[in-house]
Design a protein around this nucleic acid. Structure first.
Length: 423
DNA sequence: TGGCAGCGCAC
DNA sequence: GTGCGC
DNA sequence: GCCA
């Protein structure tokens, strides 16, 4: 985070601004600057993040269930008889968005909610104004849901939906990687009723190549990956990456980098001081070939080897991998792995972006936005908008480390393990 | 009442 | 252009 | 579903 990724310092590319030039060109002392201590990417410093114990799993598990139901409803125009909206302008999309936030807040709440007094205490914390900062994100409907779960152990709304076999089946299909609500609804309409069913008549299901992989590896891909295994996977990739391109930097991001005890997938970012065009032309395809040949990378889901507009900016390979059997002969699980290669000039931005968490990123982007800036996995630039259309994007500030990016924004640096905020 | 990010790849 | 995942 |  604070130390450069390579020993030799990088020369600033001509099209980047120095920190001085950048700060000179950005507005300061705006109203957001005075309130920046309230940001999720600043205010939770030292309080959230390292929370490893989930005191309110009895509540969040139920909210998660309802969330996945809404997620199915949100994106299933085929399921709704009247046809849902085509975009995420759909009402359910934002219910899910909002509930995710609530789950994050409860996961980080340092004590279990059992009694009405516990709940009132938390509500009071949310309503307090003046001296204490006012917390946001839980509204009246959600307080009612939490109270219902505390009293009855469940939500009537969940049972109503799950009693509908269409919803229950669609939720199961949605667990297949590459199958969203639209496909799940299509499969229901075609008469499929279970994963087993789908496997039996896979040819009739008309799945895409990715969905077929998702179905074949279904059970394994549902499992969390222990931290220890993420490290093993990283070391295999590092070994082959180093063979392909000596001196390559290999950094595993995602929840692993935030210190999580287990992860949903493995997100590996790589870079090298060499010339960008050269790095982005052959390295990743070469690495992928090596990983395939050794049997480690078993499936490729999608590539971004860069034939599009942004071919100079990054390359990706999403796939499935598996470690060799353990010494006592036990087979290992198939795991989702993302490989990404960024040129050195944007490596710090990419590392910051893919380390997350989601809400931490949103918070930083929001702050940047209010200062007339735009933050992405490629840079931090001045943005000019007319009628909400981005018409012009300035040069990015030069950053060799994540800390440089915080500095450019005028924020305090936050270590990865404290970026675990969700609220 | 409008905003909550926006993008690239498979098909 | 839609669906999907990031 | 929450918020300004």
């Amino acid at each position: 985070g604070t130390t450069p990724f390579f020993k030799t310092p990088m020369e600033k590319p001509r099209d980047f601004l120095t920190m001085e030039e950048f700060k000179m060109s950005t507005r300061k002392d705006t109203w957001v600057d005075k309130r920046k201590d309230k940001l999720a990417c600043q205010s939770n410093l030292g309080t959230y993040g390292s929370a490893t114990e989930d005191f309110n799993g009895h509540i969040t598990s139920k909210l998660n269930e309802l969330m996945s139901i809404y997620d199915a409803l949100a994106q299933a125009p085929l399921y709704n008889d009247r046809g849902g909206k085509k975009t995420k302008g759909n009402e359910y999309y934002w219910k899910v968005f909002s509930m995710k936030k609530v789950v994050g807040i409860l996961k980080n709440h340092p004590k279990p909610l059992r009694t009405q007094e516990d709940l009132k205490e938390l509500q009071a914390e949310f309503n307090r104004r003046g001296s204490g900062r006012r917390r946001k994100g839980i509204g009246k409907k959600t307080w009612n849901k939490i109270w219902e779960i505390m009293q009855t152990g469940t939500l009537q709304r969940i049972n109503e939906h799950l009693n509908d076999p269409r919803i229950a089946t669609m939720l199961n299909f949605k667990k297949i990687w590459g199958v969203g609500a639209a496909t799940a609804a299509k499969l229901w309409k075609k008469g499929f009723r279970s994963i087993h069913d789908l496997r039996k008549r896979v040819n009739e299901a008309e799945l895409t190549a990715n969905q077929k992989v998702g179905l074949a590896r279904f059970e394994d891909l549902l499992e969390r990956i222990p931290r220890r295994e993420v490290e093993e996977i990283e070391s295999v990739v590092r070994k082959h990456a180093e063979a392909e391109l000596p001196g390559v930097a290999v950094v595993t991001c995602g929840s692993y980098r935030r210190g999580a005890p287990n992860s949903g997938d493995v997100d590996i970012l790589m870079s090298h001081p060499k010339d960008d065009a050269e790095l982005l032309s052959t390295f990743l395809p070469g690495l992928v070939t090596r990983l395939r040949r050794t049997g480690f990378l078993t499936d490729e889901l999608s590539h971004g080897y860069g034939h599009g507009k942004r071919k100079h900016e990054s390359q990706t390979c999403f796939g499935v991998c598996r470690l060799p059997p353990t010494t006592d002969g036990k087979r290992r699980r198939y795991r989702r792995i993302d490989l990404k290669v960024y040129p050195r000039r944007s490596f710090a931005f990419a590392i910051l972006y893919f380390t997350g968490s989601d809400h931490f990123n949103r918070s930083m982007r929001w702050y940047a936005h209010k200062k007339g800036l735009t933050l992405s996995d490629h840079g931090l630039c001045k943005a000019t908008r007319v009628n909400r259309e981005r018409v012009w994007e300035g040069q990015s500030v030069f950053a060799e480390t994540e800390k440089d990016i915080f500095d450019a924004l005028g924020l305090d640096y936050v270590e990865p393990q404290f970026r675990n905020v969700q609220g």
